[in-house]
Amino acid sequence: MRLADRIAIVTGAGSGIGRATAIRFAEEGARVICADVKGHDETAEMIGEAAVGIQADAGNDEDVQDLVQAALQYHGGLDIVFANAGISGGLASIFEQSADDWQKILRVNLIGPFLAIKHAAPAMKERGKGSIICTASVAGIRAGAGGPAYSASKAGVINLVKVAATQLAGSAIRVNAICPGLIETGMTQPIYDLARAAGKEDRLGHLNPMKRGGVPDEIAGAALFLASDESSYVNGHALVVDGGLSISHPFNHQEYGRTAL
């Protein structure tokens, strides 16, 4: 029960990484505000009495303020925020995207985590400490893992947590990011569907040393670590969970006794 008596907000909790993390937090003793723009209460219903489902747009200032107030109203405090909600915006090139495309993606992916930090930190200060976790991506580390606006937004998240950690110095509120690699979620489902339709599912994730894609529970485990006291000295850090994809440039993997084809 690593999160016993903690109160958490998880955005993008309607599916994928958000749902897996909300469930994991509850299993470890937390009471969870499950927020999703689609307004689904399924995740909260799956968890039971330890969860409340709320419709909220993670990139909307008033909605994020309301989420924090909900945590205070229902549970009397706030200890953990997982600012996970995000959109991909597709893989169109810089020359195919419009300024409106960029504004929509940056609003959710980057302004959303900014709002989460801005409004959660004062509530956490009342508790004497807290953990804020933002979903970034390996696409924010280097090119080739996402579209231009998505990649730029996730690079911004990585730097945002560093700046926020310094500006919260002395507060005992930690701010970190998780950088997932290829994870099978609603966002990446088209990639998986195309690969399966072409009989090439075994090629998914083949560029990383694990030679497979990840699953939401593997990111939830990283979020649990960052939310818990086990990471009490981890701050301003971007934790990469990608099977090793980002450790090198693509290369011809060498397997024991033979060359991989």
Rank of each mutant, 00 (worst) to 15 (best):
L72M: 11
H237E: 07
Q65P: 06
I133T: 01
A71K: 00
I87G: 05
M1F: 02
R31V: 02
A164M: 03
T135C: 12
G76E: 00
V138Q: 09
A56C: 07
E184P: 14
K125V: 02
R107S: 11
M187Q: 06
M124W: 01
I178C: 03
H75F: 07
K162D: 04
L78K: 02
A198G: 04
L224E: 00
G236H: 11
E27R: 08
K125R: 11
G181S: 09
K104Q: 05
A152S: 14
I183W: 07
R24C: 05
A139N: 10
K38V: 15
G205R: 15
Q189L: 08
M187A: 05
H237V: 09
L106R: 06
A20M: 06
A165S: 09
R31Y: 06
R142F: 02
I141F: 13
M46C: 08
I173E: 01
G18P: 15
V108H: 15
I178A: 02
D242F: 09
I105C: 04
D61I: 15
A223Q: 03
V240G: 04
L204S: 03
K154C: 10
A44Q: 12
M46A: 11
D61M: 08
Q65A: 06
V241N: 02
S248N: 08
I132E: 00
D36C: 08
A222C: 01
F82E: 01
Q69H: 15
S88R: 03
K125Y: 03
R142D: 03
G199P: 08
T11P: 09
V10R: 04
Q189V: 05
I178L: 10
R31W: 15
N208A: 07
T185E: 10
A85K: 14
V68R: 01
Q55T: 11
P148Q: 08
G156T: 09
A222Q: 03
Q167N: 08
D202M: 09
L72G: 07
V32Y: 12
P190R: 10
L245N: 01
D101H: 01
Q97V: 00
H40D: 14
E62I: 09
H237A: 14
M46L: 12
D229Y: 05
A116G: 12
A223D: 03
S98L: 12
D202N: 13
G257D: 05
H75M: 15
N235T: 14
S15E: 10
G48F: 02
A220F: 02
C134L: 13
S137F: 05
Q97P: 00
E230Q: 14
N208I: 05
